[in-house]
């Protein structure tokens, strides 16, 4: 009995360490839409194999477009090196939602583009302003996030992806 108690005390004392493995919040479960109009659950983002990136953006947001444009130039390399997928979630509401597909296809971006027309995902992620970008590990846990964009900011994203691989 005493042994069990002792074990229990030890376990409790070390519990923060065990807990740390699970210290990152998981991506909230929210339904968004694909640019073809199909429902897409954020749960479909994690396959248990590769990390992924979520970028919240809008067609009317200049730094958002600059960030996605900059990443598009190195995206092929990232996919090859990390197996990463970028989900570009547009928060354009019904005013400009129909402009998203023509815009991204003309740009030739290879991202998975999704639409969050009433900002449900934005709110669930506690995002104040776009651009907002977060990196999730293969379990769907948010390990890093950032708001705003300055040219060259994509280097930091690369470093985080690299650290996830090690």
């Amino acid at each position: 009995m005493k042994r069990i108690l002792l074990l229990a005390v030890c376990l409790l004392a070390f519990s923060p360490i065990f807990a740390q493995e699970n210290n990152h919040p998981r991506i909230p479960s929210v339904d968004v839409k694909t640019i073809d109009g199909e429902t897409f659950s954020t749960k479909q983002m994690y396959t248990g194999e590769h990390p992924f990136i979520i970028s919240l953006w809008a067609t009317w947001c200049v730094p958002c477009r600059e960030e996605l444009e900059a990443i598009s130039m190195v995206y092929d390399d990232w996919v090859e090196e990390f197996g990463v997928t970028l989900f570009a979630v547009s928060i354009d509401d019904s005013r400009s939602a129909s402009k998203v597909a023509p815009f991204v296809r003309s740009k030739g971006w290879e991202y998975v583009v999704l639409q969050d027309v009433n900002s449900d995902l934005k709110r669930a992620l506690n995002v104040v302003d776009v651009p907002f970008l977060c990196i999730c590990n293969k379990y769907g846990e948010i390990v890093w996030s950032h708001t705003s964009y300055a040219p060259g900011g994509e280097e930091e994203i690369y470093e985080v992806l690299k650290s996830l691989k090690d």
């Binding site: 129909s98 402009k99 597909a101 023509p102 815009f103 296809r105 003309s106 030739g108």
Partner: peptide, 12 residues
């Protein structure tokens, strides 16, 4: 609303 898009081109 009607739109058509392909790689490199979009109209709405």
């Amino acid at each position: 609303t009607a739109s058509y898009s392909m790689k490199g081109f979009g109209v709405e």
